[in-house]
Amino acid sequence: MFEGRLLQGSLLKKVLEAIKDLVTDTNFDCSETGIALQAMDSSHVALVSLLLKDTGFDHFRCDRNLALGINLQNMSKMLKCAGNDDIITLKAEDEGDTITFMFESPNQDKISDFEMKLMDIDSEHLGIPDTDYQAIVTMPSAEFQRIVRDLSSIGDTAVIGVTKEGISFSTGGDIGKANIVCRQNTNVDKEEDQTTVEIHEPVSLTFALRYLNSFTKATALSPQVTLSLSKELPIVVEYKIEKMGFLRFYLAPKIEE
């Protein structure tokens, strides 16, 4: 059987809010090392990769590898019934066709069990090659969210450029143009307010803002976001999940025809 008890249940709620509009159905792959998920959006332009390590759970048991096929909208409906401070336990039998979510209130005076039907999902995992990215930028996740939202009101695509000075986001549309530059900034009081640029070579790529906007639904998971870019490769937008792993989004670039 599989059982995972998560003291900070709100993390799971946040993960679901971040991916439920991008991916419809997906397998949660449970093994003794944790829970992993890989899924593409319906148009096969973006890929989501989630890792929740066993060590991040208060209790974790997985006797044999299980692929739990889940409709994310339905799981989101279930998790919305958990309080933000609740402890969440996931349970599934090896041969079962349901998953149980147990919610415990912080002072243990309310225990709720929700059972959700699983589905059979054929999924093939894509091999993501290890890449030495030409540019890696870490910046406040709220800042990234704001920039992407602001640019979305002006254009459909954004050019993201990285030089040793910083990262720039540009767009254009019927009403005009916009260009935002965030400079490397390591002299701030709080580490989470820093913007750091690690660069081997300047890089500039074009992406659909609609997807970038969708990724920023993960902002609540982490105060910082890391953007990794290389010429003619998908951008990686990574939100680290404290003590547990990460939520990564890969987005294919737009290329000159």
């Binding site: 593409m40 148009s43 096969h44 332009v45 973006a46 890929l47 093939e124 995992h125 894509l126 091999g127 993501i128 090659p129 695509t157 074009t206 659909a208 490769l233 998908p234 890969y250 987005l251 294919a252 670039p253 737009k254 290329i255 000159e256 025809e257």
Partner: peptide, 13 residues
């Protein structure tokens, strides 16, 4: 500009 698909970058097993 053309939108590339993600599967053209990552290999199926």
């Amino acid at each position: 500009m053309a939108q590339k698909g993600i599967t053209s970058f990552f290999q199926a097993p």
